[in-house]
Computed example of a mutant assay.
Amino acid sequence: MSQAIRNTQEKTNMNLHKPTHVSRPRPEELVPSRYALKIGEIDVMVISDGVLTLPGAMLAHNADPAVRAAWLKDMFLPPDAFDWALNVVVVRSGSQTILVDAGLGSDPDLHLPRAGQLSKRLEAAGIDLGAVTDVVLTHMHMDHIGGLLVDEVKEGLRPDLRIHVAAAEVKFWEDPDFTHVSMPPGFPDALRATAKRFAKEYHNQLRTFEDEHEVAPGVMVTRTGGHTPGHSIVRLASGGDRLTFAGDAVFTVGFDHPDWHNGFEHDPEEAARVRVRLLRELAANRELLVATHMPFPSIGHVAVDGNSFRWIPAFWDY
């Protein structure tokens, strides 16, 4: 296992909590919802925002239904719907504390009661929202920005918060194109409305970049496009250790079938090219991968397997 995996699950060293606060598990928290590790001198914590239950067809709307059903069966997943994980990351580098993506928040019209857990799980982890200096958004889909629209989150954030997002992403959501997606009913309207509200409420905090931007020492955000025009990944590097948070560039099915089109991809063909390039690069340099919709805590490595890839989960370090 990589030396980078030095989990401090119960005793985080991130110093994000108030000194007098003692985090105790909530009665309803029956499974872990956070996992801490070090990337060199950078502290990292992966936090679960819960899960989304979505139709199985969302995995690959360009695949033969029988082939898709066979893959789901081989993975011991139900044939019609399954739970998509929602992961965000908190990073501490130098004097900066960075939240990468913000989860779903609350949208009662979509009936997703098991998602939007970020606020209470940050609290359970002892993370003070007022300590967050920066937010990085991989893109502006509602399951990545909605958490910032929750009242208690907005009230806890500092007024000088910087929100880093690709300029192409902000531009796209001024008049988004949904002609190539394959989403369940209600999602396009919800995505539009959430992005519009977010851009309005956080206009003064936005810090846009074109292609690449160093947010903090060893924390680089790079635009990939594909999933959305401004979709970005976040790469951490310190002391010889490396980790990439891939956002929605990589899904579980993408290792076996990187050419399958996810229903939320606005440019599916480009998204597939981005996915293949990224997975080949991660396999070559052996760095760690975390992604939004990989099963929590989604930390692992990538290996090339012929024309496809293998996902190798990291052993949990206690």
Rank of each mutant, 00 (worst) to 15 (best):
P32N: 06
A166T: 02
A57I: 12
L77T: 09
S93M: 04
M220T: 15
E169M: 07
P313S: 08
H261R: 13
E155S: 13
F82P: 07
A60Q: 03
E174M: 15
M75L: 08
G240D: 04
P19G: 01
T292K: 11
R68Y: 01
H231Q: 05
D43L: 10
N7V: 10
T53V: 14
G94Q: 04
H17M: 11
K171N: 12
K18H: 09
T138C: 13
T208K: 10
E210V: 15
R26W: 06
T97A: 14
P184L: 08
V88Y: 11
T252F: 03
N15V: 01
V219G: 00
A291N: 10
D189T: 12
L72N: 00
H164S: 12
S95C: 13
D134N: 06
E10L: 13
E281F: 05
H293P: 04
D109C: 09
S232P: 01
T53N: 08
P185C: 02
R235E: 12
E281I: 02
A246R: 05
E214R: 12
I127A: 04
H261S: 14
V91I: 14
F82Q: 08
L279W: 00
I145Q: 01
L86H: 04
A272T: 05
H266W: 06
F172T: 06
P188F: 07
V89Y: 06
N87Y: 02
N204K: 15
Y202M: 05
L104I: 06
E28Y: 13
K38D: 11
H144Q: 09
R273A: 15
R242P: 11
Q96S: 12
L122D: 07
T208P: 08
F264R: 07
W71L: 10
P297W: 02
M75P: 04
E152Q: 14
A199Y: 15
V22H: 10
A66G: 07
V274F: 01
P297R: 03
L16D: 05
G126E: 05
L59C: 12
V46M: 03
H141G: 12
L99A: 08
T20M: 10
R286S: 11
N307W: 06
G126N: 07
G126R: 08
V136T: 14
E214I: 13
A199D: 04
